[in-house]
Design a protein around this nucleic acid. Sequence first.
DNA 1: GTAATCTATGAAATCGTTTTCATAGTCCGA
DNA 2: TCGGACTATGAAAACGATTTCATAGATTAC
Lengths: 328, 328
Amino acid sequence: MATISDVAKRAGLSRTTVSRVINQHPYVSEDKKKLVEQAMLELKYVPNSNAQKLRKQSTETIAVYVPRLTNPFFSQLVETMEEVAVEEGFQLLLCQTRYNKQQELNYMQILKGKQIDGLILTSMENPWSEIEPYLLYGPIVLCNDYDYSARVPIAHLDQVMGGYIGTKHLIDRGHEVIVYCSSEPGISRVSKDRQEGYIKAMQQANLKIRPEWMFSDQFTVEGGKRLFYRIHHQKDRPTAIFTGSDEVAAGLIHEARKNGYRVPEDLAVIGFDDQPIAELMGLTTVKQPIDRLGKTAMELMIQQIKSKKMGDARRVELPFELIIRETT
Amino acid sequence: MATISDVAKRAGLSRTTVSRVINQHPYVSEDKKKLVEQAMLELKYVPNSNAQKLRKQSTETIAVYVPRLTNPFFSQLVETMEEVAVEEGFQLLLCQTRYNKQQELNYMQILKGKQIDGLILTSMENPWSEIEPYLLYGPIVLCNDYDYSARVPIAHLDQVMGGYIGTKHLIDRGHEVIVYCSSEPGISRVSKDRQEGYIKAMQQANLKIRPEWMFSDQFTVEGGKRLFYRIHHQKDRPTAIFTGSDEVAAGLIHEARKNGYRVPEDLAVIGFDDQPIAELMGLTTVKQPIDRLGKTAMELMIQQIKSKKMGDARRVELPFELIIRETT
DNA sequence: GTAATCTATGAAATCGTTTTCATAGTCCGA
DNA sequence: TCGGACTATGAAAACGATTTCATAGATTAC
């Protein structure tokens, strides 16, 4: 494999000059530049990026932590992030925490080892205080999940509002017994706040809230199905359900219909996210602008890397949109 | 940030000995080892991974090229691959080609620049002859998409068979006018072979094949909807459709029902992949073992990296499974 | 006409590791 | 008791780039 020295030798110049051509420094004469380019072409030379990273102390690589990719919310988030990153000349290292505290912390070594220029967290399995120390080693941006005590850029939605909007819609439709199902396992602020929004809306309407109406352990299509049977067998059956994702809603509706329920007459269901499946099923849902969320987070990251300033804790809050279809 | 020299100084030993401890070489006495570990702890030392990569000439990083992540087939594939990679001590660099020839070639610089130890292609936008030269720079493994002339490890399914199974099932159900819809844009062998399987089954049954019964431009839920209207307005309306993915099938069925079609009585539909949505919609489908596919490909890659032997063109072919539900 | 600035180039230091080579003491068998 | 094998350590070279510093000719400014 050709090195920069080989190129220099071939062009009859020094390594310095070759490096200047590669990095488009000024002060290289046109004719020498041509010579170098010719030599690089002949030798099929490509700079060794590990050497570059070591010397430049920058890697043009950003890591994204997601719980798991089969959750469409996160795969769409990552898709957008990769697109923005590449446009700006960065690459994406993908890390799945699998909702696991330890896994998340293990991955932190990547930041410590200078392997990446920055880190985007889309969910946090550990409290911010566990993560904060790593800020020493490089910039961190929060996306989706958040913690207001964190002094880092954040792109997110006000999930209290999200929970409120959805619940309020069900209340407006005349429902009084409403079940809430959270979106994620773990200590995520997203779940906590969204549930707070649910509670707020219920209280405002003077409706009862009961622990057995709040679920926090079902997150997939399968989970939605299980959720249905839990409800189905309850004494005080709810008339409406606020689910943490469109997938849970879809699974739930599927199973409900199979058991002779009419939706929304016997059971109203509202989803969350507005994934393709929502339109397909005619699902009323609280839409999250996932693309804008991912784009914003990545841009905040890149700005921070390029400006080399840490500590500009800009917070960008994006809006929800209630999409009313046929399940409420 | 502490370097290996700092650690060495603090422990009163040489860099060499510290390096030996880090890499668990033999021939380090217990007491010196303790000293080094103590020093590393005190200084919160973490090796600079770019320096390691440069010196070791290996990066413990594998790149995966996918067209795009919002296609659930690919996000599931990547999810599995990441899991296997991490288990074996590797990391995953994610690259989306967006079905774009040039993008795919651009990304090839990553391999040339020694930034990764190997490359897994899940789809090919360029003919193998364009890609082959890059083998010089590191191992390549094909996954899902394939080209029999490529002398590299391949994990895939016999898509001719896949197309045949699905079509045969429709024929067995008594259908004679069957539309085929391919799974991907571009020159992918997957599409070509699957279509060949369709043709084979049709010919075996002495059924007519017409160009206007073959579509190759719709790949999403939205695409499925558009596909429905194309068919809806045709003169010789088909009674059955073989779609390239469950999503297309889902969109199509949704739109068909909206227009008063009964499925499968007026229009039978078979999907491909067996994604969660397929069960949800009661969709008959040709199941691909995506997890096994991803796992196998990653294992083939890691074996090749670890053995340092190139050119063992092992081919692993996994089986389809026909899942019959209610849409055929 | 001279000092200051700009342009163009290369030698050598540097980034932070691992690897090679050299050295020396210990142990063991004949 | 001698020689080979094993254990333990460190100095210096190597990985392949970029950056700093030095130098020198060309140009500009007054």
